[in-house]
């Protein structure tokens, strides 16, 4: 077998594996456009005959057959919670990451380790005390309560990523800027921030995705349409007597689309951030 043939075979094999990875997702996307009737038919219908946006209309309460699940509110809650907690977490995390990247102080490495360890606490284990404390303080079942929690769980990872990106910016650039007449504050915003910008953006998107996809904590800390997020809302479908597969699929598509777009935007920086944070100590 020649080298060219072998390369071709590897290419085909890789292609098939990639296809296999995509199939579950694509199947859900396809189902989102099919009516429940067709999904439930026995024997199975393989070639879709009836594709439409009816499921999407239904879950947003627009079509003829209305689904009693307020997906619109969930979407709004998810958006508000994820965006707010991301903005706050990145601000806080960036400041912490900068401190770790630029300053030496006693106890630095153990401080770093403890911050990272706080991230290892399983969501469900953390949800128990938070559930009680949030009930006492009235934060339970509010967007604010979830935002605070998500900010905290996003801070350690944001610190990790931004620390790596700031360390890549040579220290003497900030010094040069200060000699050129900048205050330390100006030097940060005019020189260091622009250079770490893409990394910070990817840290932000990572934080956003974590909040957007989180389930274990949200499922315990939210109860009503005022605060339930999309992943929690998805479970509403399973609580009903018969599962509305088509509606669930449509909602799944709504959850995945923002995540999909954002991940494509930052894939390169994300990999860079994850690896140099770990390898080039």
């Amino acid at each position: 077998m020649s080298r060219g043939q072998r390369d071709f075979l590897i290419w085909v094999a890789t292609f098939l594996v990639m296809l296999a990875i995509c199939i579950p997702g694509l199947w859900v996307v396809l189902s989102a456009f099919r009516p429940n009737g067709e999904i439930l038919t026995k024997p199975a219908v393989w070639i879709p005959r009836d594709l439409s946006f009816d499921n999407f209309r239904a879950i947003f309460g627009l079509g003829d057959n209305v689904v009693g699940i307020p997906v619109g509110s969930y979407f709004w809650n998810s958006a508000v919670i994820s965006v707010t907690s991301t903005v706050v977490a990145v601000t806080i995390g960036m400041s912490g990451g900068y401190a770790f990247a630029r300053y030496r102080f006693p106890g630095k490495s153990s401080a770093f380790l403890w911050l990272m360890l706080s991230r290892t606490v399983p969501g469900i284990a953390l949800s128990l005390p938070l559930f009680i404390l949030w009930s006492w303080t009235g934060l339970i079942d509010t967007k604010l309560g979830v935002i605070i929690v998500y900010t905290a769980i996003n801070v350690p990872f944001t610190i990790w990523l931004t620390e790596g990106f700031f360390r890549q910016v040579p220290r003497d650039l900030s010094e040069a800027a200060q000699i050129d007449g900048c205050t330390p504050w100006q030097a940060f915003w005019k020189v260091e921030f622009p250079l770490a910008k893409s990394g910070i953006a990817s840290a932000a998107i990572f934080a956003f995705l974590t909040s957007w996809n989180e389930y274990a904590l949200a499922s315990q800390l939210t109860r009503s349409t005022d605060s339930k997020t999309l992943p929690v809302g998805l479970m509403d479908f399973t609580a009903q007597f018969t599962i509305d597969w088509a509606g669930m699929s449509a909602m799944a598509v709504i959850i995945i689309i923002p995540a999909l777009i954002l991940t494509f935007l930052v894939q390169k920086h994300l990999i860079a951030g994850l690896t140099f944070g770990g390898v080039k100590g």
């Binding site: 003497d172 010094e175 040069a176 200060q178 000699i179 050129d180 205050t183």
Partner: peptide, 14 residues
């Protein structure tokens, strides 16, 4: 530094 009216050339140019 900004108030000392100095300028500096760094080893790695910065």
């Amino acid at each position: 530094p900004r108030q000392r009216n100095i300028s500096m050339v760094f080893q790695n140019y910065a």
